[in-house]
Amino acid sequence: MNLKSVLLAAAFFAVSLVVAHAEPKLISIASFGEHPALNQVAEGFKTRMTALGYVEGTDVTYDFQHANFDRSLIPQVLQQVEAKHPALILAITTGLNQAAVRGITDKSIPIVFGAVVDPVVAGIVPDWQHGSAWSTGASMLPDFDATFVYLKQVLPEAKKIGTLFNPGEDNDATNMKLIQEAAAKAGIEVVGVPVDNANDLPQRVQSFAGQVDGIFLIQSNIVQTAVPVVAQVAQRIKLPLFNSVFAPDLADQMAGFHAISYLKNGEHAADIADRILKGEKPADIAPYVPQPEDFDSYVSPKGLAAVGLTVPDALKDSPWILK
């Protein structure tokens, strides 16, 4: 081979390396369904990845798929995700993550979870200090001690608070355990009403009439996808309704929110994804536990007025007030 041929071959090899290096990494985002809160996890993730230096189209590309809140479609979604051989999967919600841990056969693909309350109880990670061999992420573990501090300021006379939960969901089981423990410390009784079918929600909300002083909705998929229905019934029976998910479009129907930020949850998931893409093993990364700054408190004067209540004097100048 003459010198010219050698130089041409070297140049071709160098160009090949540049092209290979420039190939963007595919990140698959798989969600249980499209919902404003769950979409915020994906939005927060992508925004934070950009801030961390991952330019979309150059360094990374994203593929988004969801199961339309239909459990029977989750295996199909995961098969489609795995077939694209992504560099990493962001899996949103507990049920979808549980299915991904079982159903993704290529264990070289790391899975970062978002919108999962308790990944330990769900069997996604072994404990709060470690990820599994291929999965870790950002949890949404609630702070119900802070929730009851908030509720006692908005409803100073409240003795009983109602909530709805799906007994078949691991997220809901953890939420109910934690809310009962926090309520006992706060001197408030929690009345939990089970619901495993969204069609039963109006009747179950109606059952709170005359039994509780207010309703607080936990992070339950079955409830959060039907909050407008719950709000209508709560207003009809004159009970103030509070949510653990901030929904500005429902501010006039809700008495208030003590809500974890789904946007920040996505940002924390991106921080973990960045560490994995840079070579850290998921097993060496502890799941993220929400801090006080990950929660927001709001009070809706219109929502309180709709059920015959007013903002307590002590809160009238509070930054919590929604205008």
Rank of each mutant, 00 (worst) to 15 (best):
residue 1 M to L: 06
residue 5 S to T: 14
residue 5 S to H: 02
residue 8 L to Q: 06
residue 31 S to W: 00
residue 33 G to E: 01
residue 34 E to C: 01
residue 34 E to R: 15
residue 37 A to F: 01
residue 39 N to I: 08
residue 41 V to I: 11
residue 42 A to K: 12
residue 44 G to P: 03
residue 48 R to Y: 01
residue 49 M to W: 00
residue 50 T to C: 01
residue 53 G to T: 08
residue 53 G to H: 06
residue 56 E to V: 04
residue 57 G to H: 01
residue 59 D to G: 12
residue 63 D to E: 08
residue 64 F to H: 13
residue 65 Q to E: 13
residue 66 H to P: 00
residue 72 S to G: 10
residue 72 S to C: 04
residue 74 I to V: 15
residue 83 A to D: 14
residue 103 G to H: 11
residue 103 G to S: 14
residue 113 F to L: 10
residue 116 V to M: 05
residue 122 A to N: 05
residue 124 I to N: 07
residue 125 V to C: 10
residue 126 P to Y: 07
residue 128 W to V: 12
residue 131 G to P: 06
residue 134 W to H: 15
residue 135 S to N: 06
residue 137 G to Y: 02
residue 141 L to I: 14
residue 143 D to H: 08
residue 145 D to M: 04
residue 146 A to I: 05
residue 148 F to E: 04
residue 149 V to D: 05
residue 149 V to F: 00
residue 166 N to H: 04
residue 168 G to S: 11
residue 169 E to V: 05
residue 170 D to F: 04
residue 170 D to H: 05
residue 172 D to T: 15
residue 181 E to Y: 02
residue 183 A to W: 05
residue 184 A to K: 08
residue 185 K to T: 09
residue 189 E to M: 04
residue 191 V to H: 03
residue 197 N to C: 02
residue 202 P to E: 01
residue 205 V to Q: 02
residue 206 Q to F: 02
residue 209 A to F: 01
residue 210 G to R: 03
residue 216 F to Q: 05
residue 218 I to C: 03
residue 219 Q to T: 13
residue 225 T to E: 00
residue 229 V to G: 03
residue 230 V to A: 02
residue 234 A to E: 03
residue 234 A to S: 10
residue 236 R to C: 02
residue 237 I to P: 01
residue 237 I to K: 10
residue 238 K to C: 03
residue 241 L to Q: 05
residue 245 V to I: 15
residue 247 A to V: 15
residue 254 M to S: 15
residue 257 F to G: 07
residue 258 H to S: 07
residue 260 I to Q: 13
residue 264 K to A: 13
residue 265 N to L: 11
residue 269 A to H: 09
residue 272 I to D: 05
residue 276 I to G: 08
residue 276 I to H: 07
residue 278 K to H: 15
residue 284 D to R: 13
residue 289 V to K: 15
residue 291 Q to L: 14
residue 292 P to L: 11
residue 299 V to I: 14
residue 300 S to F: 05
residue 300 S to I: 11
residue 301 P to T: 12
residue 301 P to G: 09
residue 302 K to T: 13
residue 304 L to R: 13
residue 307 V to R: 09
residue 310 T to L: 01
residue 313 D to A: 15
residue 314 A to Q: 14
residue 322 L to D: 07
residue 323 K to Q: 12
